[in-house]
Simulated scan of single mutants.
Amino acid sequence: MTGAVTGVPASPGRALGPARLVRSVDDFGRLRPGDVLVCRTTDPAWTPLFHVAAAVVTETGGLLSHAAIVARECRIPAVVGAADAMALLADGAQVLVDGALGTVTGVTR
C-alpha cells in the first residue's frame, strides 16, 4: 500500500532514502549513511545518528523536541509527531521526507 505519514514540519528540506526503523540503542549500528532515521523519540544519546541520517522521522515531539532541534542544527529534514510512523513505514522502503511540509511519502507496508 502506498500512502503518506504526516506530522509536524520541524526542520526544512527534502531527503530521499531507505527508512531505517530504530527502536533502541541496540539498533544504532543498523543506520547507514543516507538512511532516514525513523523512531519513536530521541534523546541526547541518539545525537550521533543525526550526523549519519539523511532525515529524521519521529512518532512524538514538536518544534522544541530533541529531534527537531538537533535536526535543525545538523541541517537535515525532520518530521516529528508523526503518529504510527513505526507501524506504517516499512524498514528499508524508499521514502521521501519533506521537512517543510511535514510529510513522508512512498510508504509501503
Rank of each mutant, 00 (worst) to 15 (best):
P12Q: 11
L16N: 09
D84K: 09
A45I: 02
V57G: 01
A55K: 11
V52W: 00
V38G: 00
R32E: 15
R72D: 12
G29P: 07
E59I: 08
H51Q: 13
P33K: 09
V56N: 09
P44Q: 08
A71N: 10
L31V: 05
P33W: 09
P44M: 04
S11C: 01
V56Y: 09
A71S: 15
A15N: 05
D91H: 09
D26R: 15
M86C: 03
I69F: 09
V25T: 13
R14E: 10
P33V: 02
T47S: 06
G92S: 08
A71L: 07
G92K: 06
A67E: 03
H51G: 12
R23L: 09
R30S: 04
L31K: 04
L21I: 07
C74S: 14
L49H: 04
V79K: 11
V25G: 15
L16H: 10
H66D: 14
E73N: 11
A15E: 05
A87G: 09
A87S: 14
T42L: 06
L31E: 07
D35P: 03
S65C: 14
A71Q: 11
A85K: 10
A55N: 13
A67F: 00
P77M: 06
A45M: 04
R40E: 13
E73K: 14
A78C: 05
A19F: 01
G29E: 15
L49P: 03
A68Y: 08
G61M: 09
P48K: 05
R30Y: 03
S65F: 12
G34M: 01
A83C: 08
G61R: 10
S24F: 08
T60S: 12
R40W: 10
D43I: 00
R30C: 01
R20G: 01
V52E: 02
C74F: 12
L88Q: 15
R32N: 14
G61S: 05
L88V: 05
P48Q: 07
V22P: 04
A55I: 01
E73W: 13
V79A: 06
A78N: 04
A67P: 00
L16F: 05
P12F: 07
V22C: 02
S11Y: 04
L49K: 07
F50H: 06
R20V: 05
A93L: 06
H66I: 08
L37C: 01
L88N: 11
A67H: 02
A15P: 06
L88K: 15
G17P: 02
I76N: 10
L31A: 05
R30K: 11
S65G: 12
R72E: 14
S65M: 11
D43T: 10
A19K: 12
A82Y: 07
H51S: 15
P12W: 05
V22S: 03
V80D: 13
V80H: 14
M86P: 02
D84Y: 08
A19T: 11
G61Q: 13
A78E: 12
F28P: 01
L37F: 00
V79E: 09
R75T: 05
A90R: 15
A55E: 12
H66T: 09
L89H: 09
E59C: 07
A90N: 11
V25F: 11
D35L: 02
F50C: 03
A78L: 04
G62W: 13
A90E: 15
G13D: 04
C74T: 14
G81W: 08
L37Q: 00
L16T: 15
A45Y: 06
E73Q: 15
G13Y: 01
L64F: 12
D35Q: 08
A54Y: 07
R75Q: 14
I69G: 10
